[in-house]
Design a protein around this nucleic acid. Structure first.
Length: 290
DNA sequence: CACTTGACCTGTCCGC
DNA sequence: TGCGGACAGGTCAAGT
């Protein structure tokens, strides 16, 4: 579900609302979603104050005054929704943005009671997780250390981009874009969008890419990610922001989930194919194989 | 080592 | 309406 733009939107929403609040207690409705030592959780989670909310790749960190952090991965269907009691201001956003009306619901896995509201970790498919980890140890975790560069940071130069993708020169470019060790934060939606914008067939091997194609792709990646953020994230099914509102339902998407609709560039019907065992959307005219 | 595939879960949608 | 199968935004552990 959530890719870099969606996780970024959740981060911003949470940061605005929950920093400086105290965690009064927590309730784990599904063990797999928060597989922590219970004594540890009681000691370092309850009574702690939230000091910051951060993001790296698709992973969120909620830092605590106990020097521990909640590390959260939403995977496909995870949501983090904050509510205050009887708050009527929610839902005042985009007119298409419907709101989760009842919480907890049948996908709620963990509830944090905060001093001024409640934070719900919902996750229909139970692939996501949250873990309590000493803040100082986060950067040393394998899962963090092995991540590729953040594509919206200055460090994401053309040279770094090509060095990274050429680590997998015999793979198809789409599967490489999805590899978090190569570039952090791209998922299935933004991979398809970036490849369309760069006019590259997703099955093209990295070593077959021309220099102009690589330059187009390097520019396309931050462009589509920023568009996603501007649109408030994209909602295919489950994604909602920290207020429980959906994103702009893929209004910015040029190919994703638009099979049989005309390509915005040339009018050819978009096709849905399978690449690296993922649903993949292309314009067969603009994104021809070499 | 590089690369691909199946598994993890639950819900929904589509065709029969 | 019911049932089986395919599919869904992500990542691993296995396999070749």
């Amino acid at each position: 579900m959530p890719e870099l733009p969606e996780v970024e939107i959740v981060k911003r929403g949470l940061k605005k609302r929950i920093v400086n609040q105290q965690i009064l207690k927590h309730e784990v409705l599904r063990e797999k979603s928060f597989p922590n030592d219970k004594i540890l959780a009681k000691k370092f989670l309850n009574k702690a104050t939230i000091t910051d909310v951060r993001r790296r790749a698709k992973i969120l960190f909620i830092d605590l005054s106990s020097d521990y952090s909640l590390m959260i991965h939403l995977k496909m269907t995870g949501q983090l929704v904050y509510r205050t009691q009887g708050d009527s201001s929610f839902g005042a956003g985009h007119p298409n943005n419907s709101l989760i009306s009842n919480l907890p619901d049948n996908s709620t896995r963990v509830v944090l009671a905060l001093s001024q509201g409640q934070l719900f970790f919902n996750d229909q498919r139970v692939f996501g997780w949250m873990k309590l980890i000493p803040t100082a140890e986060l950067a040393n975790l394998d899962i963090i250390r092995s991540l590729g560069p953040e594509p919206l940071k200055k460090e994401f130069t053309y040279e770094l981009f090509t060095n990274q993708i050429e680590r997998r020169k015999n793979s198809g470019i789409k599967s490489v874009l999805l590899d978090q060790k190569i570039i952090a934060g791209i998922g299935n939606i933004y991979a398809d969008e970036a490849l369309w914008l760069a006019r590259i067939n997703p099955e093209t091997k990295v070593h077959e890419l021309t220099i102009p194609a690589k330059k187009r792709l390097h520019k396309a990646i931050p462009k589509v990610l920023n568009e996603g953020i501007s649109a408030g994230g994209s909602t295919d099914r489950n994604y909602v922001n920290a207020e429980g509102q959906k994103g702009s339902y893929l209004v910015f998407a040029k190919v994703f989930r638009r099979e049989n609709l005309p390509c915005p560039s040339c009018g050819t019907p978009i096709e849905k194919i399978r690449v690296a065992s993922r649903g993949t959307h292309i314009c067969p005219n603009c994104q021809r194989k070499l």
